[in-house]
Design a protein around this nucleic acid. Structure first.
Lengths: 158, 158
DNA sequence: AGTGTTATGTTATACTATAACAATTTCGTC
DNA sequence: GACGAAATTGTTATAGTATAACATAACACT
């Protein structure tokens, strides 16, 4: 989705935030100004962002919150499925399909840092089946793929 | 593999260590006493173990190494494919198939803590193909599945 | 306005990991 | 066996990530 050309990221952020507002209203949970700001900052790019980076960005305002403030907001957003945590990076990224909760699959570019959420056809089901064959009952899945995205391959930074 | 009954774990450790010795000799790298000890400790159970836990166990000897000592040994073992890192747990576990380097897929039981390495048929290839369809070139994959293993389900601790 | 609940602020600390440099050990070569 | 280069381990300090515990403030409902 974040292809170099023709990507209006301001709109990208706006869309994500209004979707979040709709979703939160629908669920009767509160997207407070703080949580909204953290969501905007997570969406400030398509590259996963660390909790302490978010904190730095908030400090620009002069406010400078303490870590728990940011972590709590991130926890809320994660619980509501508005952001995902990228385990291999200790970082957070906006969820592309926040309407329904789901396990995400990510392609993470080691050149530009962008992470794109993927729906690999039937992969979740396949994992579930393979696990069941071992007598294992699946709770949640983490699938993170590292490499280089098309844009970075195309520009031969390799 | 770690099914409650009929699992001689001492043999399990011995086998892992002798395999490691064979592999290291074959590659001309050195499985020093320190590295060997760390490998044994990682293999002390089938549950992933944190670096600082390894450190605690080593301290039992009176030696008490500093963190870098343990991390360096773990880095070596990981580079040689003798252990894998479980990203969702910040912990390490012995590799079940250390002969050839590979990306592992893990089923991690949230009840007993055991992690079993899985080879889901064609899953790596499938991920690679799905990525390629997005123009993405895959470097490495992380697949970690949380849930409950057959043993824990069977004993209805649920 | 009063009260229970939820959210945020604040301080301290736990946990995970690495940088930088010193000392030691190993190994090949003389 | 002595030497020097390379690899390994020791040591100290610090960076980076995350949460516990308790205080205060905002909100929502009567």
């Amino acid at each position: 989705m974040p292809s170099r050309s023709r990507h209006n990221h301001q709109k990208c952020i706006r869309d994500a935030v209004s979707a979040a507002e709709r979703i939160c209203v629908g669920r009767g949970v509160r997207l407070t100004p703080l949580r909204r700001q953290v969501l905007e900052l997570v969406w400030s790019s398509h590259a996963p962002i660390g909790a302490y980076e978010v904190l730095e960005l908030m400090a620009g305002d002069g406010a400078r919150p303490a870590p728990p403030t940011v972590y709590r907001a991130l926890d809320f957003l994660k619980t509501e499925g508005l952001v995902h945590r990228i385990e291999t990076l200790n970082a957070f990224v906006g969820c592309a399909h926040p309407e329904a909760p789901h396990d995400a699959q990510y392609l993470i570019c080691e050149a530009c840092g962008n992470a794109v959420e993927l729906e690999i056809d039937g992969l979740s089901r396949q994992i579930q089946k393979a696990a069941a064959r071992e007598g294992f009952s699946v709770g949640g899945q983490t699938v993170e793929v590292k490499g280089k995205c098309g844009d970075c391959l195309g520009s031969r930074v390799s």
